[in-house]
Simulated scan of single mutants.
Amino acid sequence: MPAWLFALLAVFAIVTIVVCVVVPIQVTQHRSSSSKASADRTSDAAAAVSTTAAAPTSSSTAPAATAPAQSTASAASASSTATPTETASSTTSTTSTTTTSSATSSASTASALTSTDCESYLPCENNGVSVVRNNTCACVCVGDFAGTTCSTVANSACAIVALSDSQNATLGTAVVSAIAAGATLFPDIELKQSVIVRVFNASDVSCLSQNVLMTFLSKSKRRHRKRDRDDTTTKTSSAKATTTATVAVADQAATTSKTTSSTKKTSSTKTTTSKTTSTTSTPTPTFTITNNVLRFARVAVLDVLQTNHSVSDSSTLQKSLENMFLKDSIDPDTGTVTFSSGLVLNFKNYTIDGI
């Protein structure tokens, strides 16, 4: 073999050994050192995130926000020259930080009450509204309702009534009593409680004003009515006494005149007896106002209210009946009262016509 060919083969063998053995070893060592440096940087970033999460929120808000950003920047810088293993480690660190922040936010939200929560924890009755005050449930009551859950009445003039739609409402105590009495004493007259409540609410009539509509012949008016009757009786008695005295004087004068005339004509004296004539007048009969008459009057007022859907019409009727009771202007024989509107009330048969 020529010498030059032997030299060429030797050079080729050396190059092959360098390329196939030495270069891979150098590359492997370089990769190992790079992986170690990346692991050190990932460990430092994780330690910084843990320190931020453990620090108080009020005093470390700015540093906490900066540290993850710096770590992310370092990770991004490293990832540009690092291997896929380094990139995976950086992504895992970022995901861990995001999960920690999300859990903290959820815990903060869970501790705050909402009105929806309060509707379950403290349900309000009678159309009350659930609200949150200072992270505590409370009820805002409407109308005349009060109490923690709006289940009581604040106004003594009101009473709670149940409507047909499973809701409660307030109604004047006198109105409630009148409806109950009417159902027992006058069953032919149907009073619809839900309609009455609706008419009163539409006109915003308070419980006190509702009770006034049911008031007839209060104590003061009863005393006034009795005093008027006593005055009428006294005047009638005085008139009777005056009439009797006048008739007696007239009879006595006539007797004296006759006696004088007889004396002149004859000498004999005749004894004349004077007669006293008195006129007795029969008192005018009046309609007797009983408790049932007053109860019927209340039912009539409510019937007009629910039929005409008018508080004004029922108030006008109440005032008219009150005036009739005071002046005894109800027909004592028939007990019937006829109004210009065509309404006819019979206080003997307890009937209502003309509505």
Rank of each mutant, 00 (worst) to 15 (best):
L294H: 01
S102H: 06
T116K: 09
V247R: 13
D251C: 12
N126G: 03
A88C: 06
T316G: 07
T351R: 10
T242K: 11
T95N: 14
A146Q: 07
L343N: 02
V23T: 09
C20S: 12
S156C: 04
T66N: 13
A154R: 10
L8P: 00
T149D: 04
T109E: 11
V176K: 09
N126P: 09
T338A: 15
N349C: 04
S111E: 06
K36P: 06
T277W: 06
P24I: 13
T242S: 12
P56Q: 03
A88L: 13
E125Y: 02
L302M: 11
R222P: 00
T95I: 12
Q29R: 15
T286Y: 02
I25A: 14
T277E: 15
S257W: 04
A69M: 14
D333A: 12
L343R: 04
D251L: 11
T83V: 09
S274V: 14
V15E: 04
A250M: 12
T148N: 05
T152F: 01
L294T: 03
T269V: 14
H224G: 07
I289R: 01
T16A: 13
C124W: 01
Q252I: 07
T72C: 12
K270Q: 09
F186C: 07
T266D: 11
Y121N: 08
V304Y: 01
Q193I: 04
D40M: 12
T61V: 11
F186S: 06
Q70I: 15
T42L: 10
D331Y: 08
T234C: 09
V337D: 01
F186G: 05
S130R: 00
S93D: 12
S96W: 05
Q193D: 05
T307R: 15
S120D: 07
T72L: 15
L317H: 02
V176E: 04
I17R: 09
S102G: 10
S340T: 12
T83H: 06
A174G: 06
S111R: 08
V197T: 10
S93A: 13
A181H: 05
V22C: 11
E86A: 14
A76L: 10
R298S: 10
A250L: 14
V175G: 02
A47R: 14
E86V: 03
F339N: 01
N323W: 07
S34Y: 05
L163G: 13
K258P: 00
K319L: 10
D303A: 11
S38C: 09
N211R: 03
K265D: 10
R222H: 03
V153P: 00
T273M: 10
Q167M: 03
T338V: 14
L163Y: 07
T81C: 02
